[in-house]
């Protein structure tokens, strides 16, 4: 069964320069979509990845990555909405590419559906009150 799963991969400095992610396709037959990637000053890397393919192959691929020294987290933890800072204006709604943030009708409250988030962080740039936080 083909499923989609979004994960955050953290590369320690000794792995950051190794070709690892391509093995997802070569060894495990998975498609992947890199949503975001960065390497910090100390050469550690962070990558947000969407994996598409067989569920059991994905599990094998993740344990392969762990063996290579990567830390793996599920994506949904990484963009957080701080409710007490949200003024429910909706400035984030029109720029959110996946409608993870939306205005609920008729309450007109801004709601956040974490499972739809691809961590593009446009909501963080568009929020006036610092209500959206990245925990990467």
């Amino acid at each position: 069964m083909t499923v989609s799963q979004k994960v955050v991969l953290r590369f320690p400095s000794e792995v950051a320069d190794k070709p690892v992610v391509c093995e997802l396709a070569l060894q495990f037959g998975l498609k992947f979509n890199i949503l975001q990637a960065s390497i910090s000053a100390h050469r550690e890397g962070v990558m947000v990845l969407e994996m598409l393919g067989d569920k059991s192959q994905q599990e094998k691929a993740l344990s392969f990555l762990r063996d290579k020294g990567l830390e793996i987290e599920s994506l949904s933890q990484d963009i957080r909405k701080v409710e007490e800072r949200c003024i429910h204006c909706g400035a984030c709604v029109g720029v959110c590419p996946t409608q993870a943030l939306y205005l609920e009708k008729p309450s007109f409250l801004v709601k956040y559906e974490e499972s739809k988030c691809i961590a593009c962080e446009l909501c963080i740039s568009s929020c006036f009150t610092g209500a959206m936080e990245a925990l990467i």
Binding site: I87, H88, C89, G90, A91, C92, V93, G94, V95, L103, S107, F108, L109, S126, F128
Partner: peptide
């Protein structure tokens, strides 16, 4: 505008409100 998108130059454009309708209410 509140329905979520408008047509501009034949393109569907998603809308964002800068003022809170919820809190206006």
């Amino acid at each position: 505008l509140r329905e979520g998108s408008i047509l501009v130059q034949d393109k569907k454009v998603p809308t964002s409100s800068m003022s809170s309708y919820r809190r206006a209410r």
